[in-house]
Simulated assay, not measured.
Amino acid sequence: MNKTALLLMVLGLSYGMAIAQKATKTENIFLITVDGLRWQEFFKGADSLFVDDTGMIKDQGSLLPEFWHQDPLKRRQMLMPFTWSTLAEKGQLYGNRAFGNKADLRNDMLFSYPGYNEILTGAPDDERINSNAKTNNPNTTLLEHLQQMPEFEGKVMAFGSWDVFPYIINEERSGIPVNAGFDKAEGANLSPAEQMINRMQAEIRGPWGGVRLDPFTHHYAMEAIRKQAPRLVFIGYGEPDDWAHGNRYDEYLHSIKQFDSYLKELWEYIQTTPQYKDKTTMIITTDHGRGVEKRTWTGHGAGIPRSREVWIAAIGPDSPALGEVKQEAQVYTAMIARTVFQLLGLSYPEEKADDAIASILP
């Protein structure tokens, strides 16, 4: 029995019916990633080991009013209110290992470029994708496959906070416009908002050399979506991972809450725009996990336990409202690529890609 059939059985669905049903309502995909957000915070909110550690926050006690409650279900609502209202009520959330529901990476590198390659291509490639170097991806991403189709040509766009995304997506070969790192909005007809974002990005560079602050990524994406109405949008937010690497748990939590507000803005725009309303699926995930102890949480990789553990969420017209999936099951971020194509009613052209996450499908 293959993995798709097993997962369908776990979730009480009919394998035959799922395969027979090819018609979908999804016409557009918003694929959203956030770098290095642990499943522990996603499902349980602020970590009791870290939330008042003076070595990890600027002011002792400063996080408690905004992020702390004894009940982890309330803590997670405090941290990610949109996720634990709209997404939890109308979507699907995978990866709470307390229920035996596991979401994992297949690659053995367990850091960003290999993680994004796996999400975007449907398969790990540890032989060739084994560093974060700015080298063009030899693999073809799901974005590029769609860009090559007449109905999607010119309607695929990508945005990212990390300046390596143009190489992961292989902007040069694929022809997909990628606004990432410190790229500005370009063109002859920039909106006043884009002109202002360009100016502000030039004046506020943030604390990292290769990663801009997420507000710039988000608002560049929002303006482009409003102006050009793409059918496939990829947005890669980055702040949580970089704050974590700096051992700043306070800023890590603030960036997660900000990310959640961006998801809310994206979904509300989708649901109030005729081109997107009831025709768009949003899939959200992360590129890797990270350590769980004070000495390891700042890092991730093959040498740090739990770095393989991630989470996945989805919401859209073809995805049953399962909420937080509590059945024992195993999913992988590598399943996302084929899932995207099946939601669009298409066959994924890469045979090596993992199976789809069957429960996201109608």
Score class of each variant (00 low, 15 high):
L73I: 11
G61A: 06
Y113H: 13
P138A: 04
Q201R: 00
W84D: 12
W267S: 02
Y249R: 10
Q258V: 07
A314T: 00
F111L: 12
G323Q: 04
E27M: 05
P124C: 07
G91E: 08
M17R: 07
F43Q: 08
V233A: 02
R338Q: 10
D52R: 04
T121G: 12
N101A: 14
W68T: 02
L266Q: 02
F30Q: 03
P305K: 08
K264I: 00
G291E: 11
K134F: 11
P138I: 02
T4R: 15
V211T: 04
P150E: 14
P124L: 06
L120S: 05
Y269M: 00
G122K: 10
Y348G: 07
P114M: 12
S62K: 08
L63Q: 07
Y237F: 15
P192Y: 11
T141H: 07
E127Q: 09
I357L: 07
P349G: 10
Q77I: 13
E118G: 08
K352M: 10
V310N: 01
I235L: 07
L63W: 02
E27Q: 15
D71K: 10
N179C: 09
S131W: 09
I204L: 07
V156W: 08
H245I: 07
E251F: 10
I168G: 06
I336M: 08
I357Y: 04
S307Q: 02
T135Y: 07
L63A: 04
K102L: 15
G181Q: 11
F259I: 06
E203S: 12
E127C: 01
L6G: 04
F30K: 09
K352F: 11
M56L: 15
E324R: 14
A193H: 05
I169H: 05
K277W: 00
E293G: 04
Q70S: 12
N107C: 14
M157Y: 14
W267R: 05
D278Q: 15
E186A: 00
N136M: 03
S347R: 13
N179V: 14
R173L: 08
L63Y: 09
K326T: 15
S161A: 15
Q70I: 10
G175W: 03
R338A: 02
R290P: 01
D241M: 10
E223R: 04
M1E: 10
M56Y: 13
Y252Q: 07
T296W: 06
E265C: 06
G91C: 11
Y252G: 05
T339D: 02
A321G: 00
F99R: 12
S191M: 08
M56Q: 07
S261R: 09
Q21A: 03
D126F: 09
P72T: 09
A46Q: 04
D59N: 13
A224T: 03
K257Y: 06
G55C: 03
E239T: 06
H288S: 02
Q330E: 08
N132D: 13
